[in-house]
């Protein structure tokens, strides 16, 4: 058997996932020994047309990070799907929409207004916002269309495996690569993270699970050993997949949920509110939650059941 052909692609994302690939350190040597990287825009000079020219299913595995924010993202998702045997949604943005999925609380126009006109650092006297085609000297320029609603990769094309996280936990990337290299893969549609929750890996002690007051992290004197919930701080750990070794709670920061919901859950924010509702001693406490969507759906709004805010 010849060397595997691997591709990495970067759609709407911050780039952190690309760094995470490099964070596997010397493991990369093993990877390149067994595999050729055939497409990786961040590191290699290959044009889209080169990919288009590849035969269908000629890429063995494509790691796709980033969400589908615009037409170009979607075109590339579809293209890479066609060219790849295995498509892995890599990172929170590809899997659940990621932090940028919170833009689904707005629409294209309000995003443009904010980004291109309103931010204090913006100087845009002519109020230019992106258009799909612009007449310039020398012809017409085309820009990919910016969608009203950000989508996840799976909402766009069929995805074989999911490796969530912001970025995905390094040990899980290594495990996934090993599984791919060895061909020892779980059933399609699975996540490559463990099925447990962050709590399972978290060393903090759980106590009475009663929340009489919700506090933000700066409002408590953390004892560094009691579960955040028992200190009145909302922690997404219970509703978030394991795999990260609870590195945030271990560093005294509550989990914000980047690994996405558990395997049997479609809506991470709703899932954590169930637990919260059960733990509250007084329903009025509910009102103390500042920014509920930002808290419960920090990474997963685009993948939630309702997916976005309604626009009338």
């Amino acid at each position: 058997m010849g060397k595997l052909k691997i591709a990495f692609y970067w759609a709407a994302s911050c780039g952190g996932c690309e760094i995470a690939v490099l964070d596997i350190n010397e493991k990369i040597l093993e990877v390149v020994e067994k595999a050729d990287i055939v497409f990786w825009p961040v590191a290699m000079d290959i044009k889209y047309k080169d990919v288009e020219a590849m035969p269908d299913k000629s890429i063995d595995v494509c790691f796709f990070n980033g969400a589908i924010r615009n037409e170009e993202n979607e075109r590339m998702a579809k293209l890479l799907r066609r060219k790849s045997k295995i498509l892995v949604a890599f990172g929170s943005c590809a899997c659940e929409g990621g932090v940028i999925g919170l833009a689904n609380l707005w629409d294209r126009n309000s995003v443009f207004e904010r980004v291109y006109l309103e931010t204090p650092s913006t100087r845009n006297p002519e109020s230019v916002t992106p258009e799909t085609s612009v007449e310039v000297a020398g012809g017409e320029l085309e820009l990919p269309k910016f969608y009203n609603t950000l989508k996840t990769l799976a909402q766009t094309v069929e995805v074989d495996y999911f490796l969530s996280g912001c970025p995905p936990p390094i040990p899980c990337i290594i495990q996934a690569l090993e599984a791919i290299l060895s061909g020892n893969l779980p059933p399609k549609g699975s996540s490559l993270l463990p099925n447990k929750s962050v709590c399972d890996e978290c060393p903090r002690e759980k106590k009475d699970r009663k929340v009489s007051e919700i506090k933000r992290i700066y409002e408590i004197e953390d004892d560094f050993k009691t579960c955040f919930w028992d200190q009145g701080v909302v922690c997404m750990g219970p509703a978030t997949r394991a795999g990260c070794d609870a590195q945030c709670p271990k560093a005294n920061i509550p989990c914000t949920g980047c690994n996405g919901p558990g395997p049997r859950v479609t809506d991470q924010g709703a899932a954590i509110t169930n637990a919260l509702a059960s733990a509250l001693t007084d329903p009025q406490v509910i009102k103390q939650i500042v920014d509920p969507v930002g808290t419960f759906y920090k990474y997963s709004l685009a993948a939630s059941i309702l997916r976005r805010k309604l626009v009338k």
Binding site: L105, G269, A270, T273, N274, L276, A277, S278, L280, P283, I286, I289, P292, V293, F296, L306, R308, K309, L310, V311, K312
Partner: peptide
Amino acid sequence: QIAGRKVELAKILLKEYGV
């Protein structure tokens, strides 16, 4: 009682969803 709290919580979420 817990269902009541869930309804209250869900209302908060729905509002954010524009529902």
